[in-house]
Each structure stands twice: as C-alpha cells, then as structure tokens.
C-alpha cells in the first residue's frame, strides 16, 4: 500500500513502494484482460485530469484507467498561456479542492508544479509530468515492462539514448531503476546531457559504441525538433546518424535487448522504423501497461480507507 497522499515522483518512493505498485499492476492487467473491463473499486470517486500541456496518450491512459475502476473522471485542458501566471494554478487548485475531487492528475510545463498543487489541495495529486522534473507513472510502466520481459530489474543494464537534459521520463526512470538495482547508463550528445548525473550513479556516454555493449534495455528518448532551433544540435541528419537507433546500432547491445520509447515516435530521427516496428521493440506493450499502472496508482491513492484488499 502507498501510505502517502500523492505520487509526485519516484525520487520520493522507496523500493518497497515501487514494488507494491508493480505488484498491484499485475492485478490490474488481469482486470484489463477480462471481457468486461470494469470493476467497482472506485465507484463514486472523482478524478480530474488537469493538463497544462497537450498530451493525448497520457490523458487517455488515465481516463481509461479511471473508467475501468468505475471512478468519475473529467479532463480539463488549461490554456498553457494561463500557466505563465502562477495564480492560474493556485486558483485552479483551490477550485478543484472546492469541487471535491478525490484526485488530480496534473501535467504542467513547470518543474515542481505537482508539489505546489499538492500543498494547496487535500486531493491526491498524481504527477503526469512536471516540466523536466519527473513523470512517475511513465517510469512505473517502464519498470513494469522491463520486469515483465527480463524477469527482474536488479542487475539489468538500461541505457537511455538521446535528450537526457530535457527528459522527465529519464529522470523518473533513473530514480526508479536505481532503487530497484538496475545498472544505469545514458548516452547522448554533450549538449543534451545535464550536469552531475555521475553523482547519481549513472554512467555517462556520448558514443553509442561505448554505451550500448552489454545493455539489456535500449531506451530511446524522443527528440523535440525545437532542440535544433535552440542551437543544441547541428541538424536532424547528424543526430540520426550518430544517435538514431537502427538495426546496426541495436546490434551493439545484448542480443536479447529490448527497445523502449515513451512515444510519440519520430521515425527516422531517434529511432529507425525497422527497429520501432521490429520484434525487439516493446513500445506498444508500454502503452498497454500504462493503463494498468495508472489503474494501480489510482487504486492505491484514491481507494477508500475501508476498501477490502481485493488485489492483495
């Protein structure tokens, strides 16, 4: 069980808590496999999806997760312009508290926004991505997917490739994987590597030829086109040439290495179509597991005190 009000990031969670979420996800996968994908667990509970950034897959994933658990869910897309002013989020937090939401799923462009919201509402806050900080449910679904394929996380070598600097997915995964004993590597151009990662126990590379040998998981990060405009990279072609994962590069990793990606994909940039659509990619499974993980998170945070322990 999660003895906490919110899920703000994996930095805060213990290994035991992470395992509890993953174990609960197993039960949720079972629900999703049923013909009628619905259990009454969260009937009468209200979840608000509050998205200050455009997102289709995460929003829909939470919507389905809530619906499978019979919770009421409503999605609010806030104009990102209103996120410029802090009052926007503070007022929204107060409004949501007054409306009686049990949980708020927040996606926001500012790091720390979920923590800020949490301080101003009694509702459970689930961070669905705050700036470059964390995206814990994404990392949990990634952990679940790795565990499913590799049987364990402890000792597994995971290499993140690409734009580490701007990636909340990488940050959350680094915390989660580290707590569960994985070996961590990152590889990307120097302009996209944040300072200080070595201090977190991460091996840092700029050449795939050095980073990929021995990797059990090749985790490809999405490359935003704006990185070129920002002067961080010379060209898409150069990026694809040195960091794009194609069959040839993938051959550097372990023969049974799986390929992951948080989506949406830029085929031909950070990942070649042959790899993205090939047998070692588990990208569509990530999406499926995402719903189950979010069901588990909602269940663990929003369930009534008196709920039975059906799933444990």
């Amino acid at each position: 069980m999660l003895e906490r009000k919110d899920l703000l990031g994996l930095e805060d969670l213990t290994a035991g808590e992470i395992k509890a979420v993953l174990d609960t996800t197993d039960a949720m996968r079972e629900v999703m496999g049923r013909e009628i994908k619905k259990v009454p667990t969260l009937r009468g509970r209200v979840v608000v999806n509050l998205f200050y950034e455009p997102s289709t897959r995460t929003r829909v994933s939470f919507e389905l997760a809530a619906k499978y658990l019979s919770a009421e869910i409503t999605s609010v897309s806030a104009e990102s312009s209103s996120a410029v002013k802090g009052e926007g989020l503070l007022d929204t937090a107060r409004t949501i508290a007054s409306l009686g939401a049990d949980a708020v799923v927040l996606r926001h462009p500012s790091a720390g926004a979920a923590a800020f919201l949490s301080r101003h509402t009694r509702a459970a806050v689930i961070n669905a991505g705050d700036g470059m900080h964390e995206h814990p449910t994404q990392a949990l679904l990634d952990l679940y997917t790795i565990r499913e394929h590799k049987g364990r996380i402890d000792g597994t070598a995971v290499c993140f490739v690409g734009d580490i600097q701007h990636s909340r997915v990488a940050r959350s995964n680094i915390w989660g994987l580290k707590k569960l004993g994985a070996k961590l590597r990152v590889c990307g151009p120097a302009t996209l590597l944040p300072p200080g990662l070595e201090k977190l126990g991460v091996e840092v590379f700029t050449r795939l030829e050095e980073a990929l040998p021995g990797a059990d998981v090749v985790y490809v990060l999405r490359l935003q086109r704006e990185r070129f405009a920002q002067g961080l990279l010379p060209s898409i072609e150069e990026y694809a040439r040195f960091y794009g994962i194609n069959q040839e590069k993938l051959a550097l990793a372990n023969p049974d290495a799986i390929v992951m990606h948080p989506g949406p994909l830029n085929r031909g940039v950070e990942i070649a179509a042959e790899v993205a659509d090939g047998p070692r990619a588990v990208i569509t499974e990530q999406v499926t597991n995402g719903v189950a993980v979010r069901m588990a998170c909602l269940y663990l945070l929003v369930r009534r005190e008196s709920d039975d322990k059906t799933y444990h």
Partner: peptide
C-alpha cells in the same frame, strides 16, 4: 544554479 541540483529538480540552470 546549474548543476546536479538543477538536474535533479528538472529546473533550468
């Protein structure tokens, strides 16, 4: 400040 703390917090340094 830019450094390990900005990296962890995901704030621009």
């Amino acid at each position: 400040n830019e450094g390990i703390t900005s990296t962890v917090l995901g704030l621009r340094g």
